[in-house]
Every structure is written in C-alpha cells, then in structure tokens.
C-alpha cells in the first residue's frame, strides 16, 4: 500500500538518462577491444576425438569430487545465509528493546524523573 511519502520517494527516484552518446561510447569500447568489424563473436569449436579409458575415469572422479565440493559450497552458502538471517532477527528484537528503553528514558527526563 503506497502513501504520499512513498509516492514522493518514487518520484524522487525516477530513472534518469546518462549523458548523450552513452550507447555509442559502449559500442566504441567493444569495437576497440575487438579491433574489427560488426561481427565480433569469437567462434569456439570443441573437438572430441578419442578419449582413453584412463582419461574418462579421471574425468568421472573429477566430477564426483566436484559434486562433493559443490555440495559443500552450497551447504556453506546456506549456512551463511541462515546465520545472517539469525543475526538480523536478533538485531530486530534488540533494536525494539533499545528504542523502547530510549523512549522511556526521554519521557522520564521530560517528567523530571
């Protein structure tokens, strides 16, 4: 639900254009890097000729190792995400406590307590 404040925020953050010629500068950079004409996608051809059994086996082992590592990485990323979430929830509750205590302290000051 948007209120007037949020509408003003939207208006203040409306997108703006970069300086004129931006797209030309980007494409000039691309052309400079390539050093040739319009078609500048490098072609890459993969050639599989003959795979010895030993190579296939080491690839399989590599895949298993990679999968284990990838699993561990996924676990680690998930653990990190959960930790950040846990700390966020903790801070949210402590933040509420701090604010309430602060407001109480201010109102006590006002009433001469």
């Amino acid at each position: 639900m948007n209120d007037e404040f949020e509408n003003e925020l939207k208006r203040a953050l409306r997108p703006v254009e970069p300086d004129a010629g931006f797209a030309d500068r980007v494409t000039a950079h691309i052309r400079d890097s390539a050093g040739r004409g319009d078609r500048i996608r490098p072609t890459v051809r993969l050639r599989f000729r003959w795979l010895p059994v030993a190579l296939a086996a080491s690839m399989a082992l590599g895949i298993v190792t990679y999968e284990w590592h990838a699993h561990r990485v996924r676990e680690g990323i998930e653990a990190r995400r959960q930790l950040i979430e846990a700390l966020r929830v903790t801070q949210e509750k402590l933040d509420f406590v701090y604010q309430t205590v602060k407001q109480e302290a201010h109102s006590n000051d006002d009433s001469g307590v």
Binding site: L87, R88, Q91, E92, D95, Y98, Q99, K102
Partner: peptide
C-alpha cells in the same frame, strides 16, 4: 551490529 543487516543505526 546496529546499522548492519537492514537495522538502522540507533
């Protein structure tokens, strides 16, 4: 930690 994780500095 205040100021991190989306919690404003108080």
């Amino acid at each position: 930690l205040e100021g991190q994780f989306g919690i404003p500095k108080l």
